[in-house]
């Protein structure tokens, strides 16, 4: 296998990593905002369960959480241990006539695990950001006749965004690299692809080479996030 072929194959795998990254970011952000509101709720019946939920999810290793989501639907129900996600993949493979086992079902399992896990981390970042805005900002809005919704969206939100960009950046850089965990249930992301190459073609260097893809992606991400931070630097919170 030559360098170009290996690069292409790895790039294919990295595409799947990126898909997982984008899907998680897109879905975990609103879900995280919802979780943060729940964990700040005045109602105990909402606040306490959400705090416990966040504690449990953040307390479990992400890899274990992936296994949990992957195996759990097969264990409950009629108890005949059929793995729901494998079943999806099997059916899709048969239906499409593909010679290789498809991975969409397993991808769904990983995506669910990632979204829930990251929503919990995000929610704590959001909560910290929201709670760091002084009560005076809310009160100033109220005495000017603004509604709660207006105060949140017109006054508080942008200040929260400014506050959370640095910790949020950290978290999504971690997310980029965490996508490698998807190889635990044989999603053909970049590490899985590189390992397969190591086994089949007895090549070890593609595994190390895969780091370059992560580095470039994280580099671009850092630049973009730095830009956002700079655009918000015209005011102080």
């Amino acid at each position: 296998m030559d360098f170009v072929t290996i690069t292409k194959t790895l790039l294919e795998g990295f595409g799947i990593s990126c898909l997982l990254f984008a899907g998680t970011l897109l879905l975990a952000t609103p879900l995280g905002l919802l979780f943060s509101f729940c964990s700040m709720s005045k109602l105990k019946v909402i606040r306490i369960p959400s705090k416990i939920f966040i504690w449990v999810v953040r307390g479990i290793p992400l890899m274990l959480f992936i296994f949990l989501i992957y195996y759990l639907p097969g264990l409950i129900g009629d108890g005949n241990m059929v793995n729901l996600f494998d079943k999806l993949d099997l059916e899709a493979t048969i239906a499409s006539g593909s010679r290789e086992l498809l991975w969409y079902g397993r991808f769904l399992a990983v995506l669910i695990a990632f979204v829930v896990n990251y929503a919990c981390y995000f929610s704590e970042i959001f909560r910290g950001g929201i709670e760091s805005i002084s009560q005076g900002q809310y009160e100033a809005g109220y005495v000017l006749g603004m509604t709660r919704t207006q105060v949140f969206f017109r006054v508080v939100l942008k200040q929260v965004v400014k506050r959370i960009v640095p910790p949020f950046s950290n978290e999504i850089i971690t997310l980029v690299k965490d996508t490698a965990l998807a190889n635990a249930i044989a999603i053909p992301e970049i590490i899985f692809t590189a390992k397969k190459m190591a086994n089949s073609a007895a090549l070890i260097w593609p595994i190390f080479y895969s780091a370059v893809f992560y580095l470039i992606f994280v580099g671009v991400l850092t630049l973009v996030l730095g830009r956002i931070e700079k655009r918000l630097s015209y005011f102080k919170v």
Binding site: G136, E139, A140, Q159
Partner: peptide, 10 residues
């Protein structure tokens, strides 16, 4: 009018 002004910084 508040002691800490409470202007909207953005």
């Amino acid at each position: 009018v508040f002691q800490q002004f409470n202007l909207f910084p953005q």
